[in-house]
Design a protein around this nucleic acid. Sequence first.
DNA 1: GCCGTTTTCGGCCCGACTGTTTTCAGTCG
Length: 583
Amino acid sequence: MLSMNNDAYIDFLETTARRMDLLGENSFRVRAYARAARALEGISSSIDQCIEDGTITDIDGIGEGIATELKGFKENGTTEDFERLKSALPPHIDDLFKVQGLGPKRIRTLWKELGVGSLQELQQAADSGQIATLPGMGKKTVENIQKELERLASYKGRAPIADVIDVAQSMLEALRASPSVQRAEIAGSYRRGRITVGDLDMVAASTDHAATMKVFTTLPAVQEVVGQGDTKATVRLHSGLSCDLRVVDPEVFGATLHHFTGSKDHNIALRARATKRKLRVNEYGVFRINDQGEETERLPVATEEDLYQALDLPFIPPELREDRGEIEAAEKNALPDLPSLQDIRADLHMHTTYSDGRKSIKEMALAAKERGLEFICITEHSQSLHIANGLDRERLLAQIEEIDRVNQEVEGIRILKGLEVDILADGTLDMDDETLSKLDWVIGSVHQWTRQPIDEMTERVLRAVRSGLISALGHPTGRLIGRRNPYEIDLDPVLEACAENGVAVEINASPQRLDLDSSVVRKAKEIKNLWFTINTDAHSIRGLDDMIHGIKTARRGWLPKDRIVNTLSWDAFQKTVRAPGKG
DNA sequence: GCCGTTTTCGGCCCGACTGTTTTCAGTCG
């Protein structure tokens, strides 16, 4: 059910679209393939299965033609048409799309006229001055290409969200502090809760555009102003990240924020819907249009809610705006009841000075209380994780006593006793059963011996899940975004076993992890009786604020809040979760 | 190539900015 090779089909369609585009084929055909790729990203079942049982054409955006291509790709790993596209173009020409400023037309010209088929050949063509001789490309174009090639060499693609949160928030605060700015927000994929961002998009409402532009382009994080008009500026930050600001009048802020939140595909789908209703949507609002295509009336759209209402839709949260079925669900009033920060009553994974955290139990409890939490669980590492100063039995018992004491001292928040126990290489737990049974909540996590073959890793985690001694499975794939790949594991049987054994599966909210990934959450939520838990894994007070990233991940995964144990009242929580060693 | 409370054929999102032009194509989001 959780077939992971869906990506191969998506990549197949994307590559097809890109290459047809380069060859100058019908642009609507190109878009059909690109749209089909988006549609496949959004489905929660196995594409393999859908092709087999013929339900693939039920998916909006997939018709007979693309279904036949997919079937051919499934059976033979390629198709006649795909081979044609492959042999017609140099093998590495797709890399050229990474160069900002180059699109299908220019790449095609570069290839046709100069034989450029890779980044390396592009560099040579730029350095030799040949590019400046091409129509529509001059000295400035060459300079920009050279700059881009430099950037690409030092800065690889999209940035993990963890690397941009600080700079993004500080820029936002600086903008908001400016007297010329009425409102400001970060839009783009950052707002949609993606795990990486290609750039930062900011939107500001202002009555003095010039002043706001000035504030933005002179922020300390800015290294270079790349482009600037009356309403839009693009800057390059010291980190290499690109950042856009759009400045608009306050009364159109809602429409503009919506426009720059995207995704592009969501906006395209919405505008197609608008066209059917004789409406036009742009970043300045929603307009009624006559048969000549002229704007006759401007609908009052002060907020994003107004915008959706103008299109007869309920508000669609930013995290769902990917054109992966959210518009259809909204139409049927079937959007999930998603969690927000206010719904979260508990944080059930955090560390203190007992292992590798920086603050005491009491300090963490008080900070959690300040953030509105009703209960927390202290979950140190266990003994075999030497590098993190893991706890053995004696130290854990000592901590249990201290938690009892702190619970007496601190009012208004309850501290649970827990452990993040290592799942050892053979699937046994790094603490004896009797001691684990004294605890309220135990997270089982894999930290070591992570290079096991997939079958061994799957069996190992299954054994822990079936032990009857863990309440939750911590960061189930072990990935560190942009730094470490997930370990090899077959999550299908693991998640099924979690549901059968009353073990909650964690969405680790640390922006470096965000594990489970939202795409897995969206599939896993289909498993009956599977509970989820969103936790910060905080090692400091500041870490407690990471909860929002876990929530965004859950929201991107279409996860209803009533599937998340952290939203339960204390009473309901006790009845729901599995305490270690008890049924 | 896909799709249809306008359509089974004829449409398919929209505007800002750049660099090259001399009125606009290409790219981006």
